[in-house]
């Protein structure tokens, strides 16, 4: 198993001991009626295998981005554990990545996991060139030879089907779709085991979206990493993922093979979601 998310919750606000019981899909709310805290993620359990592609769908505010940010540790959890890729201490005890010292967190984020954000400004450093952005991750994973770093950057510029002559240009000089490609190149240049994508194509032209999704799929097949992709678009989920997770009010309401979920949704909320699209 690559990723094992156990009982993870994230509460915004003062929080009380009733927050988790009084919110979620059954309670049909995400705000605790006692203390008014927002329960963005409520006791979630989720696993991902090597090479597996998970899709997360759900209405706006259901906690999809929060869940990715917790896994990537852009934010800290209120409770729960996450195990990643057999990471353990010297004595063989599995390490909860939510409790790692900051230096180990950055090592994990520099090498083992990558995130692609909807907004390229979150994923790219706009002060660095396209090649510099890719180089940053290659350097972060330990490489100190210039030629290797340059070769690596060129290689990933090539993989995202961009002309190598643009390697030293800066992010402003690229279109939105190209910026997303550079984010992808940067994210993959450390050969991560897990790629997290938060609506990577929302806001782009439909034709550009399709090309980027195809690129992601190709690279995944070629390099063999696991992915968790958040999307509002069931077409994207259908096209890319093996497993689909449906979220509502911070909880998982349905989990299963993508084909089955789209053909025969069990949860009324999923049924609604699928019928409104198909």
């Amino acid at each position: 198993m690559l990723l094992d998310v156990c009982n993870v919750s994230k509460i915004y606000g003062p929080s009380c001991n009733r927050c988790l019981d009084l919110t979620g899909s059954e309670a049909n709310r995400a705000i605790c009626p006692v203390c008014n805290s927002i329960v963005a993620i409520n006791s979630i359990n989720l696993t991902a295998e090597h090479n597996e592609i998970l899709g997360i769908v759900g209405e706006s505010g259901s906690g999809k981005s929060t869940l990715l940010q917790l896994i990537y540790q852009d934010i800290s959890a209120s409770s729960g554990t996450i195990f990643f890729n057999g990471l353990q201490n010297d004595r063989g005890t599995p390490l909860n990545i939510l409790d790692l010292p900051p230096s180990m967190v950055s090592r994990l984020k520099n090498k083992e996991m990558s995130m692609i954000y909807q907004n390229p400004r979150l994923g790219l450093n706009f002060l660095f060139s396209a090649g510099g952005n890719i180089a940053e991750r290659i350097i972060g994973s330990g490489e100190r030879r210039y030629e290797e770093i340059r070769k690596g950057s060129l290689d990933y510029i090539d993989r995202i089907e961009m002309d190598s002559s643009r390697i030293d240009d800066y992010p402003e000089e690229f279109s939105g779709g190209q910026q997303q490609r550079i984010q992808i190149a940067k994210a993959l240049s450390s050969s991560p085991k897990l790629l997290l994508l938060d609506e990577p194509t929302t806001g782009l032209d439909v034709s550009v979206q399709a090309k980027i999704l195809d690129l992601i799929k190709e690279l995944q097949q070629e390099m063999g990493f696991s992915m968790i992709i958040v999307s509002h678009d069931l077409g994207v989920i259908n096209h890319l993922t093996d497993i689909t997770v449906v979220m509502k009010h911070g909880t998982l309401v349905e989990y299963g093979l993508t084909d089955q979920i789209l053909e025969d949704p069990q949860h009324p909320y999923t049924q609604l979601l699928v019928s409104s699209i198909l």
């Binding site: 660095f128 090649g131 510099g132 180089a135 350097i139 210039y146 030293d168």
Partner: peptide
């Protein structure tokens, strides 16, 4: 290091 990379490139 990225600054150094960019200058070198």
């Amino acid at each position: 290091w990225v600054l150094l990379y960019e200058d070198t490139s």
